[in-house]
Amino acid sequence: MIDFHLDPKSGVAPYMQLVQQVQQALRLGMLKVGDQLPTVKQVVAKIAINPNTVLKAYRELERQGLVAPQPGRGTFITATLADDSLSAHQALRDELEHWIAKAHTAGLDHDAIEALITTTIRKAHQART
């Protein structure tokens, strides 16, 4: 079962953090169709978060077609995000690692690399939309 956490410094709304953690787990194949998400009370008792926030996150995941509530039983994963692209991950990761090594050689530190990646992703995203 997925273990939620909250990062107060992320600047991302708490409900969205839960949504993203489920999406991330689905993308990486850590959650599969049929898996159950923790109950609202379990999440609340574990990370001291507002139950409405958990409900809001689960509703958003339901809206995205990723989970479905089964009355009296809980909320279950109904779709996966780990599509065919999962098989391409390893090759892409290798290339990225190679690129990061090159950036290090060129004298960029961790923060500079992260800044470069973030701005490039943002620009590419803007160019596509």
Binding site: P8, P14, V40, K41, V44, A45, A48, I49, N50, P51
Partner: peptide, 24 residues
């Protein structure tokens, strides 16, 4: 928060700790 989930109650609380406020 467990009480809120169980009993369906509303809450008003004052706090100086914004991280707590953001959480709950």
């Amino acid at each position: 928060m467990e009480f809120v989930a169980d009993l369906d109650i509303s809450v008003i609380l004052s706090s100086h700790l914004l991280s707590d406020v953001e959480r709950v």
